[in-house]
């Protein structure tokens, strides 16, 4: 992180509209940071409309976060400093991952080689672990319930992520997300390749589960018994809670980036470091993210939540599809 900033500062001296890779890298982070609440708000708004409500303002998440930053921080009696550190660790993780994945450019940036899909997955898992740890620290029953559930289901969805990664690795002989995206872009046949479609579908299910959507979780509910992710933040307040909220929006955005810019629609990214091209990539991506978000919202409204013990069936389905992707790839070839 620190070195990236150094490079960015030096890059600032380069004149003209050609952006330094380091600047783009920073811009990726900023994009995620700045627009994640917007995407969340837009989806919530759209969802409300689907249900016939007027719904919150699209910018509501910004107001929420701003409000929380102004509030005081309450720490449970038994909690240690870990309780306060965890949200910071999580947000740091969420700021690291965008450096590894194609947010704005279709060519790999220098730090893109720092970690592959698995690396990104580990960092996201670390963030999840940090949040769970913070929740467990409180001793609150619902927070602990949420964190244990989140860890359990996180472990169950892990095999699907692995098999999706295997598919990517078999297609590109690397597991860098940039190369998978390039492979998908390369030809229509590659795009409709059964293995690719299956992997994309499996990853879609993974995102569904990781962003706490129906059928795994009702993400906007206040019913503690069905909560998984949401329950973990129940004991937090003030700025740390704001960070957690922001972080969860960023995590959703990051997953959307991977789903969209690697699997589903890796088009419309900047092909060079031209300022105009890179800046144009931001609204294009936001448009795609809103499109995918609309799909998630529709799914949210058309299915019902699974009983907790039936969630394993959902995970099994995702795993099945991911395995099938590898199998088909083995059979059909690239």
């Amino acid at each position: 992180m620190a070195s990236a900033h150094v490079i960015a500062l030096r890059g600032g001296k380069v004149s003209g509209t050609e952006l330094d890779p380091a600047e783009i890298q920073v811009l990726q982070d900023l994009t995620i940071l700045a627009f994640a609440p917007f995407v969340s708000g837009a989806i919530a708004h759209f969802e409300a409309r689907l249900q016939g409500r007027r719904g919150p303002r699209i910018l509501q998440p910004y107001y929420d976060i701003a409000k929380l930053f102004r509030k005081e921080t309450l720490v449970p009696e038994d909690a240690s400093f870990v309780f306060l550190v965890c949200p910071v660790v999580a947000i740091a993780c969420y700021l690291t991952v965008p450096l590894l994945i194609p947010v704005l450019t279709n060519y790999p940036l220098p730090l893109g080689y720092m970690g592959d899909i698995l690396g990104g997955g580990f960092i996201l898992a670390l963030a999840g672990f940090a949040v769970a740890l913070g929740a467990a620290e409180t001793g609150g029953p619902y927070a602990q319930l949420g964190s244990s559930r989140a860890m359990t289901f996180g472990a169950l969805i892990e095999p699907s992520i692995l098999f999706v990664t295997f598919t990517v690795a078999l297609v590109t002989t690397t597991d860098l997300p940039y190369f998978e995206a390039a492979a998908v872009r390369s030809s229509f046949a590659q795009f409709v390749h059964p293995a690719h479609l299956l992997a994309a579908l499996a990853f879609f299910l993974v995102v569904l589960s990781d962003t706490g959507r129906i059928p795994v979780e009702t993400h906007a509910s206040t019913l503690e018994f069905g909560m998984i992710d949401e329950a973990r933040t129940l004991e937090h307040s003030g700025p740390p809670f704001a960070l957690l909220k922001w972080g969860s929006a960023m995590k959703q955005m990051i997953l959307y980036v991977i789903l969209i810019n690697v699997f589903v629609a890796p088009w419309g990214l900047a092909g060079s470091g031209q300022l105009g091209a890179v800046l144009l990539a931001i609204p294009v991506f936001l448009g795609k993210a809103l499109g995918i978000g609309a799909v998630f919202a529709v799914i949210d409204n058309s299915f019902s939540k699974l009983r907790l013990f039936k969630i394993t069936e959902f995970m099994a389905a995702a795993f099945l599809i991911a395995v099938l992707a590898v199998l088909v790839l083995y059979l059909v070839g690239r």
Partner: peptide, 29 residues
């Protein structure tokens, strides 16, 4: 060997056929 022959001679039609065949299996699941 299957792998090799198919990589050597890909065609859109067979790709389509494979996708449909995968659909058959998926609907079975």
């Amino acid at each position: 060997h299957v792998f090799a022959t198919l990589v050597a001679a890909p065609s859109t039609v067979t790709d389509g056929a494979e996708t449909v065949a995968v659909l058959v299996l998926l609907s079975q699941y």
